[in-house]
Nucleic acid binder design. Structure first.
Length: 205
DNA sequence: GCGACGATTTCG
DNA sequence: GAAATCGTCGCT
């Protein structure tokens, strides 16, 4: 037998979103000759009571893939210029997902640097959800792809298991509501974790 | 059809 | 602190 056993990760993603989010820490995501070790994530529930979720108001053309089976990529465009990527979780028909917020470039560092010439420190290459996508070259073309398959974007289990004690939790970044829900998880002390910023409504800017 | 705003980043 | 910049979605 050769290759990595993806079944445990597939099972984890098919279950409840919070354990899935924590389990994604330490996993690797590879695309366009760059590989990132995931260091920060956020969990988003489906239509059931999570006002911060893109699926909160039901199914739309944009969030349709969130309602499909786990392990696929939900990629969205925001602020007129940025892409962000989620891993769809839960059973088919339930729209939960995990936003990949930050990571460490562990392979293809030269390609990553060339792709993002303005970034000075390597730890900033994938420090933030839009930066992570930019460094990996992820855009609309990755919408809906099976991340556990052999496609353009590939998610793989953590080479080294992440102990529970190495994980911190806190409120999600940039969301309009639900500031009391600690559904952001990160590897404690990891330098690639993004800075926390409270959301500021445009009407008050 | 219109318009407000966003799971952000970058610069001043 | 504020601009950049446009797809999405609800319709004060």
């Amino acid at each position: 037998m050769t290759g990595t056993d993806l079944a445990p990760l597939a099972d984890l993603l098919a279950g409840p979103v919070v354990p899935a989010a924590r389990g994604l820490l330490g996993c690797t995501l590879a695309a366009n000759q760059v590989t990132v070790r995931i260091a920060e994530v956020e969990a988003y529930a489906g239509t059931a009571g999570d006002p911060a979720s893109h699926a909160h108001r039901g199914r739309t053309p944009r969030n349709a893939v969130m309602f499909g089976p786990a392990g696929h990529a939900y990629v969205y465009f925001t602020y007129g210029m940025h892409w962000c990527v989620n891993v769809v979780t839960g059973p088919d028909g339930e729209a939960s997902a995990v936003l990949l917020r930050a990571g460490e470039v562990v392979d293809g560092l030269d390609v990553a640097r060339a792709r993002r010439p303005a970034v000075r420190r390597d730890v900033d290459l994938a420090r933030g959800p839009a930066r992570l996508c930019a460094t990996l070259g992820i855009d609309r073309a990755a919408y809906g792809v099976d991340l556990l398959g052999d496609g353009p974007v590939r998610l793989r289990p953590a080479p080294v298991p992440v102990p529970n004690a190495a994980v911190s939790a806190g409120p999600r970044v940039g969301v309009t509501g639900a500031h009391d829900v600690p559904w952001r998880f990160w590897l404690t002390g990891d330098p690639t974790v993004s800075a926390y910023r409270r959301h500021v409504p445009r009407s008050r800017r």
